[in-house]
């Protein structure tokens, strides 16, 4: 069974067609990378799978269900830029603990299992030493690890990561890679956007190239050797120049 099925997806923002006719599958227990130039609709695609953006046409199914009808806690999402108030009165541990909130009902107390999941996530992202720090006292890499830890603590059945390696140090990137490979090996499907084409083969079982529509879909090495890869390189380059 497929964890995610996207069929002929169209997404519009006002008059702008962000995605047009996108279709792909994410089988259970595999990782799928999404690459494409800036403004190609990668993040929009992830948000649509998360149920945060509604399709103007086509369907998105997560475990056979529309994202918004899934039971709470199914999708773990780590956005590219955490647009949170860094003065908000919460510690690292508080944020990771929020991962369990969708799974705990009104007036219900945290179970042994909830506490264990939080402890495991803190351990997995090596946050033990800074667990009681306020979130304003973290480096960029630490912030990213906290939000990944929150998603892991949720014990989701689908993990969505939006450019988790952008702006983090090499050690954090290696740690995230190990973590994601481990989660996928344990059967968790992962959908992730990235700019890092060089290590795509290490991260992903399959890779799709997106620029409003799907330009290529296959095993990372094959996709990168095809023309779609060169197209992106140029594209990204010109984008960089214009800014």
């Amino acid at each position: 069974m497929n964890a995610v099925e996207v069929r002929d997806l169209h997404v519009r923002y006002d008059r702008l067609e962000a995605l047009t006719g996108v279709s792909f599958d994410l089988p259970e227990g595999t990782s799928l990378g999404i690459v494409g130039p800036n403004g190609s609709g990668k993040s929009t695609l992830l948000k649509t799978v998360a149920g945060l953006v509604l399709p103007s046409a086509g369907t998105v199914r997560v475990q056979g269900t529309a994202p918004r009808r899934l039971p709470p806690g199914t999708i773990g999402y780590v956005p590219q830029i955490e647009d949170v108030d860094w003065k908000f009165p919460v510690s690292v541990r508080d944020v990771v603990t929020m991962g369990r909130y969708p799974r705990v009902g009104p007036f219900q107390r945290f179970s042994e299992n909830d506490h264990r999941a939080v402890a495991r996530a803190i351990e997995a992202l090596d946050l033990g030493a800074i667990a009681d720090r306020h979130i304003s006292e973290l480096s960029g890499g630490q912030q990213q690890r906290v939000f990944v830890a929150r998603a892991i603590a949720q014990e989701p059945q689908l993990l969505l990561l939006d450019e988790p390696t952008t702006g983090v140090d090499a050690a954090t990137e290696d740690a995230l890679l190990d973590l994601v490979r481990g989660l996928v090996a344990d059967g968790l499907p992962v959908l992730m956007t990235t700019h890092d084409l060089d290590r795509a083969a290490e991260w992903f079982d399959r890779l799709i190239v997106v620029d409003r529509k799907i330009l290529a879909d296959g095993v990372p090495d094959e996709v990168l050797e095809s023309g779609a890869y060169a197209g992106i390189r140029e594209h990204t380059h010109t984008h960089g120049h214009r800014r």
């Binding site: 709470p72 773990g76 956005p79 969708p102």
Partner: peptide, 8 residues
């Protein structure tokens, strides 16, 4: 945003 993605 993340709360909503998680089903809240």
């Amino acid at each position: 945003v993340v709360a909503q993605a998680a089903g809240i």
